[in-house]
Design a protein around this nucleic acid. Structure first.
Length: 226
DNA sequence: AGAGTGATCATG
DNA sequence: ATGATCACTCTC
């Protein structure tokens, strides 16, 4: 399974290694599923803010009515989606929330994965400072707007290269395709995109079954039925 | 269930 | 310039 060249170009970060270009150049559904269990990191003032990714959404590109790049739309904002896989895409939503996405696939193929929830792991005291509304630790990162606030993401973090940026990246915790993990993955529709018609029902949201940090809008089924 | 918030985008 | 829209969260 281990191949010598597999990690070439990856950056060492202590015991773990960040995800590389090859990972991000996959298609959105694959990246969305494989990101579950990996660790999103933002280093602020020398301190690590980090959490395990427990919920994602895939945005399929020009054919996906819910994607900003639907129909090949190219504007100042969406320009980021046309960059190479592994680029961050951060934008302000509802005038309040900074949503953190990862561009996937290749240059000029505008697809992305939204990181929707984290299980907070490092820098929790800073996260609490950033999120005064959070009463419990499961309120810190249990939604895309919340994690943007807890992790101190702003539009300054738009269009960064997650493969090489010193401060923002994702660490590989699990090898892809680990069967134990895929058992835990639940797929359900994305929400808040009613305008997207037939795309509104597509099962493009993925989360870890039973994790306490998934967002409110996930079907409560997480645990096994019965 | 409703308000809040401001950049963005399509009009003109 | 103007107005509608919005990949959400909080408080009631």
């Amino acid at each position: 399974m281990r191949r010598g060249g597999m990690n070439r170009g990856a950056t060492n970060c202590g015991a773990t290694r960040r995800l590389g270009r090859r990972f991000y150049r996959q298609q959105p559904v694959d990246v969305a599923k494989q990101l579950l269990g990996q660790r999103l990191v933002h280093i602020v003032g020398g301190r690590r803010l980090a959490g395990t990714i427990v919920e994602t959404e895939a945005y399929l590109g020009v054919e996906d009515k819910a994607a900003h790049s639907f129909g090949g739309r190219r504007t100042k904002r969406t320009e980021t989606m046309y960059r190479d896989g592994g680029t961050s895409y951060v934008y302000l939503n509802y005038g309040i929330h900074h949503l953190f996405n990862v561009v996937v696939s290749n240059r000029d193929d505008p697809k992305a994965v939204l990181i929707r929830a984290l299980s907070p792991m490092e820098g929790l005291s800073k996260m609490r400072d950033h999120r005064l509304a959070a009463k419990r630790d499961v309120d810190l990162c249990s939604g895309p707007g919340k994690l943007g606030q807890a992790m101190a993401f702003t539009r300054e973090h738009n269009a960064l290269d997650l493969v090489s940026n010193p401060f923002v990246f994702i660490e590989r915790v699990h090898q892809r395709g680990g069967h134990g993990d895929s058992e835990r993955i639940v797929a359900c529709p994305r929400i808040g995109i009613d305008y997207a018609e037939e795309w509104a029902a597509a099962p493009l949201r993925f989360y870890l079954r039973g994790d306490a940090n998934v967002s409110r809008s996930c079907p409560k089924n997480g645990e096994k039925h019965g």
